[in-house]
Simulated assay, not measured.
Amino acid sequence: MADNVLEVRDLSVTFELHDREVQAVREMDFSLRAGETLAVVGESGSGKSQAFLSIMGLLARNGRASGSAKIAGTELVGMRPRELDDIRGKDIAMIFQDPMTSLNPYMRIADQMVEVLVRHKNMNRKQALERSEEMLRTVHLPDAKRVIRAYPHELSGGQRQRVMIAMALLCEPKVLIADEPTTALDVTVQAQMLRLFKELTEQFNTALVMITHDLGVVAGLADNMMVMYAGRAVEKGTVEELFYSPRHPYTLGLLHSTPRVENKRKRLDPVKGQPPNLTHLPPGCSFNPRCAFRTEICIKDRPALIPRTDGRVSACHHDDAVKNTNEKVA
């Protein structure tokens, strides 16, 4: 088995507010191998983005991370900003949801891409320009010479997103984190982006983390999936396991609220209720106010994230009942 390129253990993220602290991420654990794709799914506010911003050292000033996040054995949590600058872009890179706010509107694409290669690869400008044009063609931007001379506002949303992917891959990082990268794109461009991610991870053997709330994005792209709720992972396993045999009621709810081609006549069943306020989490299981399987133990005791017989892990007192219910519905 290949060595893990990213190893995260007991990662927590806390934000200091004026009168209290809020724990946005609690005790996250996962590992990622080269060429592997992990999908991290959950509703807005579940802690998905904050977990990976902490790994990148990009938390807001009032946020702090604890635990461990190692890339190729190098600890990132607690690393000084200057040291992180040497790693970001070279070993680990992140693509954000809106490329218009991620790209500098006052700089041509060429200057933004060249800067990365001069900083991390010690290339001169001519070499960096050639490499940048080559990478733009790799992400299927046919008119690379025009694109590289353009400003961000002169490109379409799909073109800007491809530029962001090209910039992230310039130094062939070990890990690429994509935070809702298809949300602002139309359906046709979304499909193109997903095919591109799959192609590029295979070509560069890059480990990919896809942060999303859309299970449709996950199905054809990811190897493994981690479901987050109220700052905590509640189920982890292969995509096939979690899609066809979920063991947590929240995972089951997400699946039942996702349109499927084979069930186009079936009415969607959304997850009822609202995510909890992280400053006032309910006692016991955080999902219990929205859960159809809730019993007294769910209100009293928070379930641990434990291994199940089929190799995945889940945090539910009634995981067998969830499994049996899904089998009857299917």
Rank of each mutant, 00 (worst) to 15 (best):
Met1Phe: 13
Ala2Cys: 03
Glu7Gln: 15
Arg9His: 04
Asp10Tyr: 03
Asp10Val: 01
Asp10Ala: 13
Val13Thr: 13
Phe15Thr: 03
His18Arg: 15
Asp19Leu: 07
Phe30Trp: 14
Phe30Asn: 04
Arg33Gln: 14
Arg33Phe: 02
Ala34Cys: 00
Glu36His: 04
Glu36Asn: 07
Thr37Leu: 02
Val40Lys: 08
Val41Tyr: 01
Glu43Phe: 06
Ser46Arg: 03
Gly47Tyr: 06
Phe52Pro: 06
Ser54Asp: 07
Met56Lys: 11
Leu58Pro: 02
Ala60Thr: 15
Arg61Ser: 15
Asn62Ser: 15
Ala65Leu: 11
Gly67Lys: 07
Lys70Tyr: 07
Ala72Ser: 10
Gly73Ser: 02
Leu76Gly: 09
Pro81Tyr: 12
Glu83Pro: 04
Leu84His: 14
Ile87Tyr: 05
Ile87Phe: 02
Ile92Thr: 14
Met94Ser: 03
Thr101Arg: 02
Ser102Ala: 15
Arg108Leu: 08
Asp111Tyr: 15
Asp111Val: 12
Gln112Ala: 09
Val114Met: 09
Glu115Gln: 10
Lys121Leu: 12
Asn124Gln: 10
Glu130Arg: 12
Glu130Cys: 06
Arg131Pro: 05
Glu133Ile: 14
Glu134Arg: 09
Leu136Tyr: 11
Lys145Val: 10
Lys145Asp: 14
Tyr151Glu: 13
His153Gly: 04
His153Ala: 11
His153Asp: 04
His153Tyr: 14
His153Phe: 13
Glu154Ala: 12
Glu154Pro: 10
Glu154Gly: 12
Ser156Thr: 04
Gly158Ser: 06
Gly158Glu: 14
Gly158Asn: 10
Gln159Arg: 12
Arg160Leu: 11
Val163Leu: 03
Ala166His: 10
Leu169Asn: 04
Cys171Ser: 06
Cys171Glu: 03
Lys174Asp: 14
Leu176Lys: 08
Glu180Met: 01
Thr182Phe: 13
Thr183Ile: 06
Thr188Tyr: 06
Phe197Pro: 03
Leu200Gln: 10
Phe204Thr: 12
Thr206Met: 04
Thr206Glu: 04
Ala207Glu: 06
Leu208Tyr: 03
Thr212Phe: 01
Leu215Ser: 13
Gly216Lys: 11
Val217Cys: 07
Leu221Val: 15
Ala222Gly: 05
Asp223Ala: 10
Met225Asn: 00
Val227Pro: 01
Met228Gly: 13
Ala230Asp: 05
Ala230Ser: 09
Gly231His: 08
Arg232Met: 08
Ala233Pro: 07
Ala233His: 00
Val239Gln: 01
Val239Trp: 01
Glu240Ser: 09
Pro249Phe: 14
Tyr250Asp: 06
Leu252Thr: 00
Leu255Ile: 15
His256Gly: 07
Thr258Arg: 10
Glu262Ile: 14
Glu262His: 13
Arg265Ala: 11
Arg265Met: 13
Gly273Arg: 11
Asn277Gly: 02
Leu278Tyr: 13
Thr279Cys: 10
Leu281Cys: 09
Leu281Tyr: 08
Leu281Gly: 07
Pro282Val: 02
Pro282Cys: 02
Pro282Arg: 02
Pro282Met: 01
Pro283Trp: 03
Cys285Tyr: 02
Phe287Gly: 00
Arg290Ser: 05
Ala292Gln: 13
Arg294Thr: 15
Arg294Met: 06
Glu296Cys: 01
Ile297Gly: 00
Lys300Cys: 02
Pro303Asp: 00
Ala304Arg: 13
Ala304Cys: 02
Leu305Val: 00
Ile306Val: 15
Thr309Asp: 14
Asp310Thr: 10
Gly311Ser: 06
Arg312Tyr: 00
His318Glu: 05
Asp320Gly: 09
Ala321Phe: 05
Lys323Thr: 02
